[in-house]
Write a protein that binds this DNA or RNA. Structure first.
Lengths: 242, 242
DNA sequence: CGCTGTGTTGAGGAAGATCAAGCGCCGTGG
DNA sequence: CCACGGCGCTTGATCTTCCTCAACACAGCG
């Protein structure tokens, strides 16, 4: 975790930028968010944020760092279901006593806070709704990735998605972005073995599409790559914003 | 579609049974639902209910028949993302002008109605929330299925899930239930080719675990099979009801 | 300085895809 | 009534992708 910043180093901007980018927030919303940020706490890498089958605590907002949602089978096989990036919601449900459908752990050191309730402001509620719709769309992406793409395609498709998502909170610099997952964890996300993932990564390097070292990924020509893979940007609302 | 009942033949029970099983509904909720049922309409098999990228019309409730959510890649590869069974919600979102993240088509002839708004009653809102949480849990199931299970495991795991879901609306009879998907469509759901799926099905037949013919599936000993696969029932709430 | 975790490479094997053909069933039209 | 055609299911042969097992290199860290 060499390159994972300490929790104290995180700017609060990414989360605010993402939510505000989903839909313009009003004064009560930003005020509530800033107050929530003030009560944020840090969770070190590899620690549990949620345990499958246990009751989900209050909805939380990820302010900095990466977390992952996964399931483990009885024989040890592991599937990484999705990733949580800065500005994304963890465990927001509308029903009583929700149970976690998966584990969640911190991948890097992580900064989280309690999410202000949607009743705070209609604008905040709208931002949450959009965030959850995006989350669902990412799950659908993951399903088609695992079901119908080859190993190499899966890797590149995932990286393109992450680039797009990080861009929403200002954490992508062109085709470059932090990528704290080990190859092992990446393989678990893509339904591959780490050995095979490694070979696919080499292949992507040799074609020049990918530079991946020291927890940092650079995609040469993300737009062209997306076109080649037949991947288009995720949109969940016909409105002017996202 | 020989065995698909005509839309007119559907009882309205399944949907009501499912929703009421999620959380006990009150008088306003059941009244609103019955009124919505009265305005239900029929969509023939293979017709579109929703188109990817287009704006989602009002939220709908599936009263009878099966529908499927899927994506198609540019080169024709197809991934069936999830299934909609009687009593399940289609296209309910909390934000303005939602865009469909996938296609939805009717697999059998289908009976649908507009879903009464959640504001109708807090009980109805709770039922919707639980329904959506279950839907998310099924997506997670699908992800681990595609990512980490073998072909044979995928088939049996999916069938176990469908049995459980149909049981919620009273459409499963022990280990037996209607299964209107072709092998081709089933393969698309499981990320396999139809040829390979066929072989896995034969294998399951030979071990006696599965009887699948004429759009009808029977699982011998679903509980034992679930145990063998390490699969446990889906629960999304710690409350007394599901 | 040795340990552990992560990435890399090789050789061989298994799961699943592809290509191709045939069969039964049913609806359609002559 | 029968011939035809299409669709869904089944089977065989061959090829590719991905997995398994094993070893080693390298870096960070106690």
């Amino acid at each position: 975790m060499r390159n994972a910043p300490k929790a104290g180093e995180y700017a609060l901007d990414p989360a605010l930028k993402r939510l505000n980018g989903l839909t313009p927030l009003d004064e009560p919303a930003t005020a509530a968010l800033r107050q929530a940020f003030a009560g944020a706490w840090r969770v070190p890498a590899a620690h549990e944020l949620q345990q499958e089958g246990k009751e989900v605590p209050k909805a939380r907002l990820l302010l900095g760092g990466w977390a992952a949602r996964f399931r483990i089978l009885e024989d040890g096989r592991r599937q990484l279901i999705s990733l949580f990036l800065p500005g994304e919601l963890i465990g927001m449900y509308d029903h009583a006593q929700p149970l976690a459908a998966s584990h969640v752990t911190a991948i890097t050191d992580v900064l989280i806070c309690t999410a202000p309730p949607p009743e705070t402001s209609p604008r905040l509620a709208e931002a949450y709704a959009l965030s959850r719709a995006l989350e669902e769309a990412y799950l659908l992406n993951q399903i088609t990735r695992l079901g119908r793409l080859s190993g190499l395609e899966r890797l590149l498709d995932l990286l393109l998605e992450l680039r797009e998502r990080l861009d929403r909170c200002g954490l992508a610099d062109g085709g470059s972005f932090p990528f704290p997952l080990t190859q092992e964890a990446t393989a678990d996300a893509l339904g591959l073995t780490s050995v095979h993932l490694n070979r696919m990564a080499q292949q992507a390097r040799q074609t020049g599409d990918l530079d991946w070292r020291a927890k940092q990924v650079t995609l040469r020509d993300p737009a062209g790559l997306a076109r080649k893979l037949g991947r288009n940007e995720v949109r969940v609302s016909a409105g002017p914003a996202s």
